[in-house]
């Protein structure tokens, strides 16, 4: 892939990733966020986080399936950081619009409400990943340790989906699509590795 194509694709990725927050800001300025703006902001930022996490987790299986798509790796960090960006906006929405910046309310919520507990846990898991996303950090940690640390993303994604299930009313099955997609992506890894090893043995 040549440099100019890469730059165009990266620009498009930035635009796509910023689209949701842009739409929210536009809606807030024009007071056009629907009947329940707080819920709109919460849902939109939460869904954007899960979508971006899922897309970033699709990159490795896609590269293994289609080796010609090796260049997708150049987009993974960007997608992961945007997932963290939306997760942080989601958390901030809770802190500001639900807990009203009240520390006691937040402490009680985290202790008592499991969907908030796992939500906060997922964000805390993403935090060190975002902090070690620079080239400098990768060099400093060494590739092996760095990639072991970044395995935490699987746990964060699973907790994110659990958070979604625990938030909806019992009987509502909306999170099923996201769950299936994440399940496929997580299962794809051992399956693709096994396939690759079998090929190596046969070669």
């Amino acid at each position: 892939m040549n440099r100019s194509t890469l730059i165009s694709l990266k620009t498009l990725t930035w635009i796509a990733c910023l689209w949701q927050v842009g739409a929210l800001v536009w809606g807030a300025v024009n007071n056009n966020l629907g009947a329940d703006p707080t819920a709109t902001i919460t849902f939109a930022t939460g869904l954007a986080t899960l979508r971006l996490l899922t897309i970033s987790l699709a990159i490795t299986p896609l590269r293994k399936l289609f080796p010609r798509l090796y260049w997708l790796i150049k987009f993974r960090r960007l997608l992961g950081l945007f997932a963290f960006f939306y997760a942080s906006l989601h958390l901030l929405t809770y802190i500001a619009l639900y807990a009203g910046f009240d520390v006691n309310t937040m402490a009680a919520d985290i202790a008592k409400r499991r969907f908030i507990t796992v939500g906060v846990a997922a964000w805390l898991l993403l935090l060190p990943l975002a902090a070690t996303s620079t080239n400098w950090a990768i060099r400093k940690l060494g590739g092996k340790r760095w990639s072991r640390l970044h395995k935490l993303v699987y746990l964060a994604a699973v907790l994110g989906v659990v958070h979604y299930w625990w938030q909806v009313k019992p009987g509502v099955l909306t999170p099923i699509a996201m769950t299936v997609i994440l399940g496929v992506l997580l299962l794809a890894r051992p399956i693709l590795d096994w396939r690759q090893q079998r090929r190596l043995r046969m070669a």
Partner: peptide, 22 residues
């Protein structure tokens, strides 16, 4: 009496801007 998953102490009034709902 809280709902197990959220507090019932406050509510969001529909149709207000996000900063004035609570």
């Amino acid at each position: 009496v809280d709902h197990p998953r959220w507090s019932q102490k406050t509510e969001r009034r529909i149709g207000q801007p996000f900063y004035a709902q609570r």
